[in-house]
Design a protein around this nucleic acid. Structure first.
Length: 312
DNA sequence: TAGTCGTGGCA
DNA sequence: TTGCCAAGACT
């Protein structure tokens, strides 16, 4: 299937002309961008990187207070690297997906050891760090260093799906076609590309939202392929929801909540109170230990990870 | 590639 | 009330 190949040059002034999107979206961004702490100059690359870790699957409103505390306590990567990983997990609080805290700690250690304490600006070096994938590497390189990258997060994917492809929602997993489209739409000039990345993401976050999109406030509503097509409803299989109640994830969450609040090692008997079913409870705890989120001690006690080899 | 991995707010 | 959704990464 080559019908959507990106070689065809866009028709100037047509609704699909890539350049036609940049101006209005960036102009809208100048007017409506939220004043977020990681967008201020003083945030630096480390602030941008910390925010990106926290924002992976967690809403801005819940990230804000934790971000502020985190940066105040660990203003540089080396400061976090010097801490026990368990302190990162504790400070992570209830942001969810606590493995991100462990990975951020690991990334800080790698930055301290391999990059002289400075967040690398090179995409390949960024993506080699734990917890940084294709999106986060592009986001840090673009937002912190002003580079030209296709920054494909869930917001941008939705904006492109609607404005350019003409469908309500993007596919479940990012496709090669989406990457091609995003690259084709990328402004040529580096600084403009970086602005476009932030602007298109913000548009998806504030206006072109998953539910109750507000086309009345959209700067490109007049050329949005989905809207021009009459906003047809999503076809195909429903996006698989993520169940939670009764899963191992819920049990893991309860176990870790106890350990986060504890100031000294927690006996097994205390952890046993968080879940009634012993098999699932044990499996969840084993999983946390295997993930490095929990450290078993002598005498059936547990704590957040110290970063030291287990004693025997 | 599809499953797993937290948490909480909102329609 | 409950399902959907939120700046993904990893296996």
């Amino acid at each position: 299937m080559t019908a959507t190949h990106a070689h065809a040059s866009p028709i100037p002034d047509s609704p699909q002309d890539p350049a036609a999107l940049h101006g209005p979206v960036i102009a809208w961004f100048e007017q409506h961008a939220r004043d977020l702490p990681w967008r201020r100059p003083e945030a630096g690359a480390w602030g941008v990187m910390v925010s990106e870790f926290m924002l992976q699957q967690t809403p801005v409103a819940r990230v804000l207070p934790v971000y502020e505390q985190w940066l105040a306590r660990w203003p540089r990567p080396a400061d976090l690297a010097a801490e026990e990983p368990g302190e990162a997990v504790r400070a992570w609080g209830r942001l969810g997906y606590p493995r991100r805290a462990l990975r951020l700690h690991g990334a800080a250690q790698a930055i301290a050891e391999r990059h002289g304490g400075e967040v690398p600006s090179d995409h390949a070096q960024l993506i080699a760090l734990p917890g940084i994938g294709e999106y986060t590497a592009a986001a840090v390189a673009s937002f912190a260093y002003g580079q030209r990258h296709a920054v494909l997060d869930t917001n941008v994917r939705r904006v492109l799906a609607r404005a350019s492809t003409g469908v309500q929602y993007p596919p479940n997993a990012t496709t090669a076609a989406e990457r091609r489209l995003a690259r084709a739409l990328l402004p040529v000039e580096e600084a403009t590309a970086a602005r476009w990345a932030a602007a298109s993401m913000e548009l998806g976050a504030l206006v072109c939202t998953a539910r109750n999109e507000d086309c009345g406030r959209c700067p490109i509503a007049d050329r949005c392929a989905w809207r021009l097509a009459g906003k047809p409803a999503h076809e195909g299989p429903a996006r698989r929801g993520q169940s939670y109640a009764g899963t191992d994830r819920q049990v893991r969450g309860r176990l870790l909540a106890v350990l986060r609040e504890a100031t000294s090692p927690v006996p097994q008997a205390v952890l046993d109170t968080v879940w009634h079913e012993p098999v699932q409870r044990a499996r969840a705890l084993d999983g946390l230990v295997a993930d490095g989120l929990v450290e078993p001690l002598d005498g059936g006690r547990y704590r957040l990870p110290s970063g030291r080899p287990a004693t025997r």
